[in-house]
Simulated assay, not measured.
Amino acid sequence: MDIPETPSESQGERSPTSKRADAERNRERILTAARKLYASEGLTISMAAVAREAGVGKATLFRHFTTPQQLIDAVFADSMDAYVDATTEALADSDPWHGFVRYITSVCEMQARDRGFADVLTLTFHSAKALEERRTQAYHGFLEIIDRAKVTGHLQTDFVSEDLILVLMANAGVLSATANDAPDSWQRLIGHLLRGFASPGAPIPPMPPPPSSDSLYLAMKRAE
């Protein structure tokens, strides 16, 4: 049920404190609904669908978030903070190659946990300024991760930052195709990619097991 935020929506006047509390509750309901829908369906969910899930009117939704980009920015603020933290943790690793492997794996796992975030990492939102600032911060951290890993001799010299975008796009595609039937398939993909990025003799994590034939068949059938 939509909680009224203005006198015209309620019976009689309400105190400013009461209206602020109602507005904050509605905002949290909207964010909770958006997180749920983005995580399960991706960023194609409409604002109207978010309003329905939150149990608020569209007018209430647009009072808090006038554009989809503003809502996306608010929903994924914490996730983008974690994305930046992943670069910090990788740079703090005493073994730069291990930090590189850790970073690639961690970011792909973030995508696996949240389909909406998988989309966020492969798209740009120029009007979502806070989100883009965090993305830029993480990008510059990743450039340093690459340089440090190359110094060890374990990362192929032709690896470039654009390769991360390809990794994230590939992972997002696998997640979209297999999430319902073979949700751990992304781990196998990343295992293969890390082997391609590693120089001969570089220490690499054990290869994750492949998905079963039956689970992949179901995923392929679903994609028809």
Rank of each mutant, 00 (worst) to 15 (best):
Pro7Tyr: 07
Gln156Trp: 11
Ala39Leu: 08
Val56His: 00
Leu61Pro: 04
Ala74Pro: 02
Gln156Cys: 11
Ala128Glu: 01
Leu168Pro: 05
Asp158Pro: 05
Lys129Cys: 14
Ala130Asn: 15
Thr87Met: 03
Thr87Gln: 01
Ala202Met: 10
Gln11Ser: 12
Glu144Gly: 06
Glu133Ser: 15
Val50Pro: 04
Ile72Pro: 05
Pro208Val: 05
Glu24Ser: 07
Leu193Arg: 09
Asp114Thr: 00
Trp97Met: 06
Met169Lys: 14
Asp214Gly: 13
Val84Met: 00
Tyr139Asn: 13
Tyr38Lys: 01
Gly57Val: 10
Gly191Pro: 02
Glu132Met: 07
Val84Phe: 00
Pro183Arg: 07
Ala128Leu: 03
Trp186Leu: 12
Asp95Val: 10
Glu13Thr: 11
Phe117Gly: 02
Ile146Asp: 08
Leu143Asn: 12
Thr67Gln: 03
Ala77Gln: 13
Pro68His: 10
Asp81Val: 04
Ile72Asp: 03
Thr88Ser: 14
Ile145Leu: 10
His154Arg: 11
Leu61Thr: 03
Phe65Pro: 09
Leu168Cys: 07
Tyr139Pro: 08
Ala48Val: 12
Gly12Pro: 00
Asp95His: 01
His126Cys: 13
Ser215Ala: 11
His126Asp: 15
Ser213Phe: 15
Tyr38Val: 09
Val174Lys: 11
Ile45Arg: 13
Tyr83Lys: 06
Asp81Pro: 00
Ile104Trp: 09
Ser127Ala: 14
Lys36Thr: 15
Ile72Phe: 05
Val167Ala: 11
Asn171Tyr: 07
Arg134Tyr: 08
Thr178Pro: 09
Lys150Leu: 05
Thr44Arg: 15
Gly201Ser: 04
Leu175Ser: 03
Phe197His: 08
Ile204Leu: 13
